[in-house]
Nucleic acid binder design. Structure first.
Length: 275
DNA sequence: AAAACTACCTGAGTGC
DNA sequence: TGCACTCAGGTAGTTT
């Protein structure tokens, strides 16, 4: 599932191949994604791609007249291809470049989007209310503590909220809580400050490690060159129900929290004790 | 305000 | 072999 490491892996993979290139043609084969593909996409031919940036899980394709906001949803991937490479089912958008290559957007579940923004990106409705980037200074133990104060919601839900911190989806929320030795169902407001500090460190650590491995490929995600990400092999709890905890050997448990599959070690991740 | 829940979509997997 | 069913999940939007 594309979470922050998968989006960052994609950004790093495509940036050298598309930055500075001019769009020669665009082929939108399926307009019906999460929202209809923005009409402005049709004005891309002739324009130069200035940069590929990322905000949260959005890829920002900067072009001369504005910015394309690409979200990979749950099953999307962007791939660089030779035009001769045959199209696969669910290849919805082709961006043909002036270097003889093309960027292909593949998304079986069509939960992604290709939207358009002009001017100041941060004021776009989808980006305006986003919290800090997890790997930047704005995400800190005090900031997380402020977000948790008085909240009864499970800590896992809170770190998955985009207003609190962006980019943490179900996989990395599970992994980070395990690294921080914190029970995922603990009410956010009851988690001691020291445990929140550990959690901030764990979130950063797991995201950085995954980026280094090219992200996590569970089912659909592929890198820009068609290769899978290799972080799956290093997952400590996600989709490991019944298997031994790599730390203590206890069986990993699976429960549902906030309608999401949640994995944790009952030995290593105790309920926080009152302070 | 916060929490709970729904919709969107397809492929993979399961049970009969 | 095939049909019916369930599940996975990011996130905006709605309801409680």
């Amino acid at each position: 599932m594309p979470e922050l490491p998968e989006v960052e892996t994609t950004r790093c993979g495509i940036a050298p191949h598309v930055t500075g290139r001019r769009v020669v043609a665009i082929d939108v084969r399926q307009r019906q994604l999460r929202w209809p593909v923005a009409a402005e996409i049709d004005t891309l031919p002739g324009q130069r791609i200035l940069a590929v940036e990322r905000r949260a899980k959005y890829l920002l394709l900067r072009v001369e007249s504005g910015t394309v906001l690409v979200h990979l949803g749950m099953s999307g991937s962007l791939r660089l291809a030779e035009p001769a490479l045959s199209l696969r089912k669910h290849d919805h958008i082709r961006l043909i470049l002036d270097n003889g290559r093309e960027l292909r957007y593949h998304d079986p579940r069509r939960f992604g989007c290709w939207l358009w923004a002009q001017g100041d990106i941060s004021s776009h409705p989808l980006l305006a209310r986003l919290g800090p980037e997890p790997l930047e200074r704005g995400f800190s133990a005090p900031a997380l503590a402020a977000a948790c104060a008085g909240r009864k919601a499970p800590i896992k839900n809170v770190i998955m909220e985009a207003q609190v911190v962006v980019g943490v989806g179900n996989i990395y929320a599970n992994e980070a809580l395990h690294l921080a030795r914190l029970h995922p169902a603990a009410p956010a407001g009851d988690v001691p400050a020291e445990a929140l500090r550990a959690l901030v460190r764990s979130i950063r650590q797991v995201l950085r490690r995954s980026i280094r491995q090219g992200g996590t490929t569970l089912r659909d995600f592929l890198r820009e060159d068609g290769q899978p990400g290799y972080f799956r092999q290093q997952l400590l709890v996600y989709e490991r129900a019944g298997q031994p905890c790599r730390g203590c050997g206890a069986a990993i448990e699976r429960v549902v929290i906030g309608q999401r599959a949640t994995y944790y070690c009952p030995q290593c991740q105790p309920w926080p004790t009152g302070t």
